[in-house]
């Protein structure tokens, strides 16, 4: 078994990895083949549109690597569900949209594999917290 020397966590738009930052500096400092990662990441995520995709890269001592992709961040799924580009830059005062609890449940179910939650209700609470921090009002 190969010795693991580190992990790199990136969030990159699907199908758009390239050697510019943040990919280049993050992988370059570990001596990884940047273009090989970009090729594999883009091939695996090309059908996801412009969605932000988290990738966790495992770095081995021989400078080889493997990676897994995770479900998009909750905020990305919230913006997508509401057809928004981004959240409020002033979430305390400015509400950018309202989302239904049904939509929150859908997102919670989608995010379940990557959330530290025992059930969907607990996952919904996490998603609602993210919604509020992005300036999105949750309709109960």
């Amino acid at each position: 078994m190969k010795k693991i020397t580190g992990y790199i966590k990136l969030q990159i738009p699907a199908g758009k990895a390239n050697p510019s930052p943040p990919v280049g500096p993050a992988l370059g400092q570990h001596g990884l083949n940047i273009m090989e990662f970009c090729k594999a990441f883009n091939a695996k995520t090309q059908s996801e549109g412009d969605t932000l995709i988290p990738a966790v890269i495992t770095v081995y001592a021989d400078r080889s690597f493997s990676f897994i992709t995770k479900t998009p961040p909750a905020s990305t799924l919230l913006f997508k569900a509401l057809s928004l580009d981004k959240g409020s830059s002033n979430p305390k005062q400015e509400r950018v949209a309202t989302i239904s609890s049904d939509k929150i449940r859908e997102i919670a179910e989608q995010k379940m594999p990557d959330l530290n939650a025992y059930d969907v209700d607990a996952a919904m609470k996490i998603i609602m917290g993210t919604a509020r921090s992005c300036g999105i009002t949750v309709e109960v």
């Binding site: 990136l10 969030q11 943040p22 905020s75 830059s89």
Partner: peptide, 14 residues
């Protein structure tokens, strides 16, 4: 991460 990714257009490292 989401806000910064929108600004950069190319993602973030965390």
């Amino acid at each position: 991460a989401s806000f910064l990714s929108t600004l950069t257009g190319s993602g973030v490292e965390n």
